[in-house]
Design a protein around this nucleic acid. Structure first.
Lengths: 215, 215
DNA sequence: TTGACAAACGAACAGATGTTCGCTATAATA
DNA sequence: TATTATAGCGAACATCTGTTCGTTTGTCAA
């Protein structure tokens, strides 16, 4: 999800133009500003920026560009934003979707969080919890879990694990103990689960959980 | 130099449209909104408004309208970010801190979320959960709950309640039932608590929960 | 009554602006 | 080598959108 030099430039120009004029620029104005001679190339790059979550466009509307939060100027350091793609759903009964999966129910939607809430580096993605099977991890239907993709973990990390012999995805704290791994639920009322290390596949680390109540 | 009803209406519409879309409306959209069938009449009134200093237009430019300060109930257009003050901690054993409390352990720290994750309006603040006493609401030590301050609630809202006779703060779904209120835990494994309505003090509505895992 | 003027209408026009499409060029991949 | 994806070009097109203009109505002062 990188921005090319040109796309960064476009974003800067659109923001600057909007501040100056009170309304967004046209495709041709953007092209002229960043040195693109063809309107179709500007459109191409705008589509890219929209797909990456930096702006929204209203089709067939003059100057129908709306910058999203991710494109806001980085005011203070804590205001740095992290754009996290919504990759799919997670439930105990099914493996988690892989990056670039075709049938992503969320299309190219993203979740944007400030940088101070999540790790500075690492590949992050968001999955929406389906059902109540992860209630022992204190997450429930509808919650978003933000995951850092990795295949190893440190003790005490909360991991996304695939337990091969049970064919089950789970969110647990990770405590390696020799040949075995103890998977500890976040809710202390639940019992830890011992699993043979070779039956455990670490899919990533849970770095945050977000729950949006109806409003 | 008075504004006619119609011109006031136009100004309101232009401001509202801009906040909603990120770009100004066309003459025809304004006309439709305020009930003018002819584009020339809209132009006539826009010219009036410009003459009176409420807006500026760039001629022959689509949507080339820029509201001036005079037109203002200026909403903060700092982007689609919502800055939420961290007000203190919440636990079952103590009342929640009031706005402007002196001994705020978080000073002036804030939590910033994108606008789409929380309600557009309303007074929001964040409290950090202390201890495990709210585990029946699926929130745990360290979690942040984002609260909209209000003293009433709709059925099925998750409320922040102070139960007077128990001297206890709690997070529960709100189900009023005549003289009584049923407080339903988010975790279905826990039992609902019936409370006399006059013993219940609604402090606010939970609009979101954020959990940051160690990293 | 008459003339000036603000306010409004709707059609016609012209220019502003987004989209589509056929075509290159390059790099990565099979 | 053939294929595919990414980037880019420019022309043609369709529609979006602001402006102009002839007309009408109502009010008010001369």
């Amino acid at each position: 999800m990188m921005l090319s030099q040109r796309q960064q430039h476009m974003l800067d120009f659109i923001r600057h133009y909007g501040e100056e004029h009170g309304f967004p620029p046209t495709i041709r104005e953007i092209g002229e500003a960043v040195g693109i001679s063809s309107t179709s190339v500007v459109k191409y790059n705008l589509d890219q920026l929209e797909k990456k979550g930096f702006l929204e466009r209203s089709s067939e509307i003059s100057r129908g560009i709306r910058l999203k939060a991710a494109a806001a100027p980085r005011a203070d350091s804590a205001g740095q934003l992290r754009v996290i793609p919504k990759l799919g759903v997670i439930s105990a009964g099914a493996p988690i979707p892989a990056v670039g999966q075709q049938d992503n129910p969320f299309g190219d939607e993203v979740l944007t969080l400030t940088q101070d809430l999540v790790p500075a580096s690492g590949e992050l993605y968001a999955l929406q919890v389906k059902g109540d099977s992860m209630i022992d991890a204190l997450v429930y239907d509808g919650d978003w879990v933000i995951i850092q993709h990795q295949n190893t973990a440190q003790p005490r990390d909360m991991i996304v694990a695939w337990i091969k012999d049970r064919e089950e995805t789970t969110l647990k704290y990770y405590y390696p103990e020799g040949e075995m791994v103890r998977l500890q639920p976040a809710n202390p009322a639940y019992q830890p689960i011992p699993v043979r290390a070779d039956q455990l596949e670490i899919q990533g680390k849970v770095v945050a959980v977000f729950r949006q109540l109806a409003h």
